[in-house]
Design a protein around this nucleic acid. Structure first.
Lengths: 362, 362
DNA sequence: ACTTGACATGACACCGGTGTCATGACATTG
DNA sequence: CAATGTCATGACACCGGTGTCATGTCAAGT
């Protein structure tokens, strides 16, 4: 591959002049510029960013770590949205800023993080994005002092700058829509109580009820998420069964994510309950594969992964350029839209009584 | 950040000796090694790969381009599996080989490819992985001569090395399972006929029928995939309606992907048809979010994205190390497993007659 | 005509590593 | 004891760019 000396020789100028043409940082005579450009084209010259970066101390590289700290297999990955949306959101911003993204995946093994970070350091990344597969608390088990780090979809105790979804407001806005549709008796199948999102969303849920003067009934809230493993279907079935057997069954069901909503659709149909005529269902995530394909299409709150990626990228770029560190006591919350689709409608006028002979398939 | 001279000075040796300790390419006295290691630890020294690569001409970087050449918006992305599995599969292999992955996304705009490749060239990537979002024919509109390139999930006319899913064998193996379960009257809701996979899979489908002595009936094969857009539900409904109205309705339905299977579940349930008691359903992709959550869980053929990513990575590493170029007249086909779950069972003993008053929701 | 300044360009060192070759210390061998 | 070989280490150039400073040319100003 040709270098700047080859170009200089062919164009009959000094390497420094070629450099000036490349960077446009000093005046070059039109005639000279043309000769240099022709020589570069002729030799298919492309400058080496490695050589540039040793002098400038700027690599133009950003590191990104995904898949970290799932202790088990990759079950979790399937539960929610794929992080690819996050990566794409961030990548677009970096691309625009002339940065290139280095990507590494822990494969669910957090012990590899220090090694990945060391590799990034060798490449002299200007910053690091640390992406979790769902909203959680983490601890980067590696030395990242003196590095610009932004956490995405997670938090740590050290107060590292972080970008997370605004779960509370998301569920609040979503539940408001449910209330606005006329529902007063709303059930909620939540994710695991161990997840940060679960508590936040429940707060939003309660707030929306309180605003509407609806009394919060804890017996209408049941955690069911087992990340798609064996007993989950049974768990959801039991929860729905409880709801349907009530004297006044709920007219709407909120689900912790779109996947749960999909399971709920199936079970309600099995039991002859019509969505949304008899019961409205809403999800969370706006995982389009699910939300747009289910019939009726699913009303759901967007988990704004692309926006979070972009926000985190901007934040990181700021950290890199501004030496001054803004205040990050609290993480940055990114709001998602509520997407209204057919699964939410006004409750039936007459109280519904359900046929309770539904059965579980073995 | 400390450099090799700082370390040398602190350890009281020459930079070259530090280099030797780092690389272990020449004997160093134990005492000296210890002093150097202590100095490195003290200064938190991490060697610069940029400085290394200008001398060695080896960057240790691999470029990866995703999201290319969807002319429309990102609709397609939602239709199938997310490419993240591909990226992870490849990344694990590269990581193991000491390579680091540079990632770029076209955002669906193929015009940006030349620019992305130029950026990769500046970083002197040793090879390039070009990942498509589904099995298709492409043309990298950029100069990649003299580069090691492997196409993943796509093909071009120039005979660039490529890794694609073995769609024909996948559908063959899947259909064999359907046949083996006792089905003789099998319908097939295919993806768009414009997709390469559709023809290949149909060939596999036909082969499986022929093996079992079942006559292929073209009226049982209907393309329905509109990538989740508006009219799709109606299209699937119509196709299923045709099937159900037949004198001898099919006892099993193959779907072009898991998303379509999800839609089919919903429509069959609406019309009171039980899966799998009355009709078995199988999908394609093994998109676990769908296949494991649907009830009954979906029998489907795996689209082996992770394996393809790994295979492509190995192939690329070979291209990089072996100067000799093996023969790649035909693309490498990667086989996926058939995953059997509850949605496939033996057909009912008695011929089914369906209630045809099913209706479409507005 | 001489000074001054703007403009265009080149020489050279330097960034942080590594390959090549030379050198010095010491042990082995005849 | 001198010759030879091995081992450990250092001096130096080089990789491919760019920052700094010097130099040469030419036109405008006095």
């Amino acid at each position: 591959m040709a270098n700047i000396y080859d170009v200089a020789k062919l164009a009959g100028v000094s390497p420094k002049t070629v450099s000036r043409v490349l960077n446009g940082d000093a005046p070059v005579a039109e005639k000279t510029r043309k000769a240099v450009n022709e020589a570069m084209a002729e030799l298919e010259y492309i400058p080496s960013s490695a050589a540039r970066s040793i002098k400038s101390q700027k690599s133009g590289l950003i590191g990104l770590i995904t898949g970290a700290i799932s202790t088990k297999t990759d079950q979790l990955t399937h539960a929610g949205l794929p992080e690819i949306n996050l990566v794409q959101g961030a990548q677009a911003v970096f691309e625009n800023a002339g940065k290139t993204l280095l990507i590494s995946d822990t494969g669910g093994n957090s012990e590899r993080v220090p090694h990945l970070i060391r590799t990034f350091r060798q490449h002299r990344v200007e910053g690091l994005l640390y992406v979790a597969d769902h909203h959680k608390q983490i601890d980067i088990a590696a030395n990242t002092d003196s590095m610009n780090v932004v956490l995405v979809n997670c938090l740590d105790e050290k107060g590292t700058p972080a970008v997370v979804p605004d779960d509370e407001n998301g569920q609040l806005a979503l539940t408001r829509k449910v209330v606005a549709a006329g529902h007063k008796n709303i059930a909620y199948l939540t994710l695991s109580p161990t997840q940060i999102a679960t508590k936040l969303r429940l707060d939003g849920f309660k707030t929306a009820l309180a605003e509407a003067g609806i009394t919060y009934d804890p017996s209408l809230v049941i955690p069911v998420d087992l990340f798609g493993s064996q007993g989950e279907h049974q768990l959801i079935w039991d929860a729905l069964d409880k709801f349907l057997r009530r004297d006044t069954p709920p007219t709407a069901i909120c689900c912790g994510n779109d996947r749960l909503a999909m399971a709920v659709y199936g079970i309600l149909r099995d039991r002859g309950v019509s969505v949304p005529d008899q019961i409205s269902v809403v999800g969370y995530d706006d995982h389009k594969l699910v939300s747009e394909t289910l019939y009726p299409a699913l009303t759901t709150a967007e988990l704004p992964y692309a926006a979070m990626g972009a926000r985190a990228a901007h934040l990181l770029l700021n950290l890199i350029s501004n030496t001054q560190i803004p205040d990050f006591e609290t993480p940055i919350l990114v709001n998602g839209q509520v997407v209204e689709r057919g699964s939410l409608q006004a409750p039936a006028q007459n109280a519904q009584v359900y046929n309770l002979n539904g059965r579980i398939r073995p």
